[in-house]
């Protein structure tokens, strides 16, 4: 059953648009899939390689701005941003890795956090290039209907899922886990830790950047505050993985479903909308204290909880 689960999920997802869902639900489905792509990317770096990044919005934003600037400055279709962002984000991630991967653990986390903020400020200030706070808007999105967007992001998700799975099953994946468990021991066994950490960062960044380029095409409008957001992108990315389960292949998907639905639920209740960061923060604290490995990782814990409750009376 467990080995077929991804195929079953994929089949259900593939026929989902045929059911004639409303535009709103298609939007939710697209968001869920997009967040699971970003979650998978973060999971590769954070969950498997143990390098917790607080600045994935930087990759997301660079990807989105690559697409936006191709459209705005070179008057190409924003879809060219998807292949172009691979190169731009890879270069950006290499540079970032050169600086930040000298740091370990929490220091790396904070360095990436500041890079996310710096990218936002740079984008706000370089008005000639990015239009600053005004943002960049597509005159017209390619399709009004959401079906094609859905299949494109689904294709990306499948690609990301397979890529992460293949990497984790290969030698590279074992290097990553070795680095996470004990960097000094990994180094003494002859693993070039800086190199493999950089590889993890570049792959993770490129996948996130692709999602960013997709976001630009899908939403048709970006500004620095949206795509370089600390809480609404970087922290949500971490929460998607933490809630779902770090270092599990299904974790980011489960986390994305929960987080997107929760965000929509909170938004739909009036008066609660302003408090959504409080609720997310409390959820994060609760997850860390009680389910540190997420819903998928600590699934047996949850099951035991219900079993003992049933046995008690």
């Amino acid at each position: 059953m467990k080995t077929y689960l991804p195929y079953i999920t994929l089949t259900i997802l593939a026929v989902l648009p045929l059911l004639g869902l409303s535009s709103y639900w298609m939007h939710i489905a697209i968001l869920v899939i997009m967040w699971s792509v970003i979650g998978m990317a973060w999971n590769l770096l954070g969950g498997y390689c143990g390098q917790v990044s607080f600045g994935h919005a930087a990759f997301f934003g660079v990807g989105a701005y690559t697409a936006a600037m191709l459209y705005n400055k070179l008057h190409l279709s924003a879809w060219w941003g998807i292949p172009a962002s691979v190169f731009v984000v890879a270069l950006f991630a290499l540079l970032l890795g050169y600086i930040c991967l000298r740091l370990r653990g929490p220091y790396f986390a904070l360095a990436t956090l500041s890079i996310g903020v710096i990218m936002r400020i740079t984008a706000e200030n370089l008005v000639g290039l990015t239009n600053g706070d005004v943002g960049i808007q597509l005159d017209k999105r390619t399709w009004i209907d959401k079906t094609w967007y859905y299949y494109i992001i689904l294709l990306m998700a499948v690609g990301a899922f397979v890529a992460v799975k293949k990497i984790i099953g290969s030698k590279l994946g074992y290097y990553f886990v070795a680095i996470r468990e004990d960097q000094d021991a990994a180094e003494s066994l002859g693993i070039d830790t800086t190199r493999y950490k950089t590889i993890a960062l570049v792959i993770s960044g490129v996948i996130t950047g692709l999602a960013g380029a997709f976001y630009m095409n899908y939403m048709g409008y970006i500004d620095p505050k949206v795509v370089f957001a600390l809480h609404d992108i970087s922290i949500i990315t971490i929460m998607v993985v933490m809630v779902g389960g770090a270092a599990t292949s299904a974790g980011p998907v489960v986390g994305a479903v929960i987080m997107v639905l929760l965000a929509e639920l909170i938004r739909s209740i009036p008066k609660l909308g302003t408090a959504h960061h409080t609720l997310f923060g409390v959820l994060l604290i609760v997850i860390i204290i009680f389910l540190p490995n997420g819903i998928v990782g600590d699934f047996s814990k949850i099951r035991n909880l219900f079993r003992t409750r049933k046995a008690a009376p």
Binding site: P106, A247, P292, N293, G297
Partner: peptide, 11 residues
Amino acid sequence: EAIIPENQVIL
């Protein structure tokens, strides 16, 4: 006990 080592920072 958790997989991600930076739990306290995320907290």
